[in-house]
Structures are given as structure tokens and as C-alpha cells.
Amino acid sequence: MYNTIHKDIRNNIMIEFAKTVEMFGFTSLEARLFSYLYLEERPLTLDEMSEALGKSKTSMSTSVRSLADMNLVTRVWRKGVRKDLYKANKQLFKTFMTTYSHKWVEATNHQKDALMEIQKLITEEDSERQLDDLSTKLKDILEFHQLIEQSFRNLKST
């Protein structure tokens, strides 16, 4: 009885946590895999992950590589074990916010640069001031991007 209840609760936690992880732009499988590894007490092989989540070993390999690239999963070594073992990084907030903030800052900077190029065009081409409305809106949009960037930089430093 205890094992069934424990398994059900663990599965429900994994499902709900995976929904949160998906909000960070992860695929459904990456989110479930990370959640599963986070709840697991020991490092696992690709075979064990594959069996637990009912997906192919290839899918597990791709997903675990993606999670490792984001420093959410680490490959570990254990004496006498020939297969690669993986475990989840346990510092949830710091790890997710660092990764997520970095993505947002990069994306915001890219968009801000593109918008600034448009602003230059307006300045150079608008001798008759026909684009004042657009220019004002563009300034608001640029300010919005600057505020987003600053907010995520502040989050990143906590």
C-alpha cells in the first residue's frame, strides 16, 4: 500500500513540476525528464530513464544532452559502472533563473538592436515629420525592452 501511494504522489509531483518547467520553454519530454531526475535520489542511466518514462533511449539521450547544455543535468562517474549516469542539479531557483534570464537578456538585446536600426531609418528618412506617431511608439517599445533587460539582469544577479 505504501509503495503505491508513494508512487502515485511522486508521479503527481513530477507531472505538476514538469508543467512549471515547460513554462521555461522546455519540451514536454525535457520537462518530465528533468522532473523525474530531480525527484530521483540517485544518478540514472539512459536505459533507466527510458524505461521509467516510456520513451526511446535516443529520445532520452537527446533530452539529457539538452538539459546538460543548460547546466540542469550533470553526468556523474561511479566506480565499476560502465554506462553514463546522470543526475539533476538540485539548485532549482538559481539554475533556472540564470539560464532563463540569460536567454531573455540575449533575446531582448537582439530585438532592441533591430528596433534601434529602425529608429535610425526613421530619423534619417523622416524630413517631413510624417512618422512622429511611429517614432513615439518606437521609443516606448525601446524603453519597454530596456526595462525587460534590466529586470532580468537584476534577477540574474540574485
Rank of each mutant, 00 (worst) to 15 (best):
M1V: 09
N3D: 13
I9K: 07
I9R: 08
I13F: 12
A18L: 03
A18V: 03
V21M: 11
M23L: 13
G25E: 07
F26E: 04
A31P: 03
R32P: 01
L33E: 04
S35A: 15
L39T: 08
P43L: 10
L44G: 00
L44D: 01
G54K: 13
K55A: 07
K57A: 11
T58D: 10
S59W: 10
S63E: 02
A68E: 15
N71W: 04
L72F: 15
T74E: 15
T74H: 13
R75M: 15
R78Q: 15
R78P: 00
V81W: 08
V81T: 14
V81S: 10
R82G: 04
D84L: 06
L85Y: 08
Y86M: 02
K87A: 08
K87F: 07
N89A: 04
F93G: 07
F93L: 13
F93H: 07
T95R: 06
T95W: 00
T95L: 04
F96D: 05
F96A: 02
T98W: 05
Y100G: 01
S101M: 02
E106W: 00
A107E: 13
A107M: 14
N109F: 00
N109I: 04
H110C: 00
H110P: 00
K112E: 13
D113I: 06
A114I: 14
L115G: 01
M116I: 12
M116Y: 07
E117D: 14
K120G: 04
L121C: 08
I122K: 04
T123Y: 12
T123C: 01
E124T: 12
E124C: 01
E124S: 09
S127V: 11
R129F: 13
R129L: 13
Q130H: 10
L131T: 12
D133Q: 12
S135R: 15
S135F: 09
L138Y: 05
L138F: 05
L138K: 06
D140F: 05
I141G: 00
E143M: 11
E143C: 06
F144I: 05
H145P: 00
H145A: 02
I148C: 10
E149R: 02
S151Y: 03
S151M: 03
F152K: 03
N154K: 09
N154T: 10
N154E: 12
S157G: 00
S157W: 01
T158Q: 05
